[in-house]
Amino acid sequence: MKTVIHDLGKEQNEKILASTDRVVCADGRYAPCQGCFKCWTKHPASCAMKDVLHQACRVLGTSDDLTIITENRYGSYSQAVKNILDRSIATSTPFSTYRKGQMHHTLRYGKRNRLHLIVYGSLTDAEKNTWQLMAERNAINMGFREYSITFCADAEEAGRTA
């Protein structure tokens, strides 16, 4: 299953769907993670908050190929996108293991294929370097075999790249 998460606005959904199986529009109309870990310990793979991100981890976990389109924020994701990632930690389980020589959580959905980040907006060289590290760390953390990153000048170019 191929999934695209984007913060380009709902009007881009149909266009992006031409090249993927499903689209998640990060519109920011949901709360940030509260750090309760109940998606691990109380009701597995479901968030305690019953808004549209209630089952976000299931969507991400069942995506063999995941593309994330995000505006740059200091070398990290936009808030709308980062909310989704923070509230999807149950793509892994509470158990721990080693990946690439470091401690990580075991993967609820097993290893997945590819993580592709498309980052748009104003970017400094330092922020591009941070993004390279972020992509690498996210791929290890989320259990993707491969990762890649594309930088775009603006949202329009990012939409075309997807």
Binding site: L17, V23, V24, V52, L53, Q55, V59, R108
Partner: peptide
């Protein structure tokens, strides 16, 4: 530790 699938009505997804 189950591999739960998203419910059919999972409103955050737009599918083909």
């Amino acid at each position: 530790l189950s591999r739960f699938q998203p419910d059919a009505g999972c409103s955050i997804i737009t599918e083909n």
